[in-house]
Amino acid sequence: MSLSPDRIALLRLISAGGAAGPRRQLLQDCGTPAAALDAGPDVWRAAGLTPPQCTALRRPDPVDARVLAWLDDDARHLLGWHDPDYPAPLRRIADPPLALFVDGDPTLLWHPSVAVVGSRSPTPSGRENARDFARAIATSGLCVASGMAAGVDTVAHEAALSVEGRTVAVLGTGPDVPYPPANAPLRDRLARAGAVVSEYVPGTQPQPFHFPLRNRILAGLALGTLVIEAAERSGALITARLAAEAGREVFAVPGSIHNPLARGCHRLIRDGATLATSATEVIQALASQAALLAQDLQIRLDAPIHPVQGREATVEAGLGHGDADYQTLWHALGHDPTAMDQLVERTGLTTAAVSSMLLLMELDGRVFSQHGRYFRNR
């Protein structure tokens, strides 16, 4: 499969390096990567590109064959700043990436998510908390985002996968380079069942400065960041700070005063983070922010769920590929509260699919929940 001129041009813009801001401005001014590349040095300089960046764009260097080979797969995607599929939450952070390489489902980057982060060497209770919080968040229909690092990140991703929930990993390496290397099988599972995301080109090896930069993407994609366990100086606290600076919610799980890995969480709570003792508290606190993404998500998934005039208790049909499943779930719901496992059994859908659709129906006002049971809005 050959890449389009726009994709080739975007790869050349990425390889020019330097500050991303001027290249974002160039894309915004010109509309497409190919037009930006054809615009020439005067337009490049007017957008703020530096002489080294202009020199790099003038060179007719071929795009790395390894990158082209990686993109030669329908399951892999390249989303540039100009692209309508570029995730809306990231556009609102201070320094959005110029582009994202995605291995897996790119629509997950639009889904309301919670970043679950913490120590690379958590205590046993920290691991249990990471698993329990992530599992409950995923079951609720929200996406669990993390960085695929050892410890809390790994536990959070695996917990979401265990309930067939949505999960996204944001890497500080190329999207094809697992770090730590022991997480290679997890990276592959995430690519198949979720999404693996990076601003670095395929093949990029780990560098210490990549990971703090990675954290801004993780914090920017998520509606909120939940810190499970963290020392007073840790990458998790960097993610929490970046989340707060981006106007996102920050939650911290308290711990024993004798646990050094609880000190970072206690500091966050002292500084204004929300103390979280259950996943329900996190989910409820983010409901209003999730509603802001609901309309964009419905459009992106072609899954309208608005009522039709003159037809009681139905879902508008025939407007998108997701409608059949929504109809099935709607008819499985009654006016009496129904448990999740009963809805899964009635519909034949996965728990993750039912959870996701119920979330959208709740945000749309079509469904209410009560003590973990769901019913139609009376």
Rank of each mutant, 00 (worst) to 15 (best):
D42Q: 14
H331S: 09
T277S: 04
R120A: 02
H306Y: 12
E345S: 15
G365M: 12
L261D: 05
S278I: 02
S356T: 13
P22W: 13
P178L: 04
P33I: 01
M340I: 13
R59I: 09
P206G: 05
A115S: 13
A169P: 05
L358I: 13
D153Q: 04
F209T: 12
A36I: 02
M148S: 02
A150G: 05
R58N: 14
E362C: 15
V250K: 03
E281P: 00
R166E: 01
S119E: 04
D105V: 03
L213C: 06
D64E: 14
Q207H: 11
R12I: 07
A193Q: 15
L108R: 11
L142W: 11
H210G: 02
A150Y: 00
P112L: 01
C143S: 13
G80D: 10
A195P: 06
D83E: 07
D188Q: 08
S356Y: 01
A94D: 09
T225Q: 02
A20C: 00
R59E: 15
T204C: 00
R24C: 11
E229M: 03
H266P: 02
L142M: 15
L78G: 07
S288V: 14
G224C: 06
S140N: 06
P124T: 08
N183F: 07
T167K: 05
G203D: 09
V144Q: 03
P41I: 07
A65R: 13
R23W: 07
A252T: 00
R91Q: 14
G104V: 07
T277V: 15
Q207T: 06
L359Q: 13
L109F: 11
L360V: 11
A36G: 05
Q327A: 12
M1V: 11
D105G: 01
L218M: 12
A34Q: 15
D323G: 08
P51G: 05
Q309S: 12
T50F: 11
L218T: 05
W330E: 08
C30N: 03
Q327W: 10
T328A: 13
T50D: 09
R66F: 05
N215E: 02
A317R: 14
L142P: 01
E281S: 14
S369Y: 00
Q28H: 11
A219F: 00
D73K: 10
A169N: 04
A150D: 08
R311F: 12
T314I: 12
R346T: 12
R376H: 14
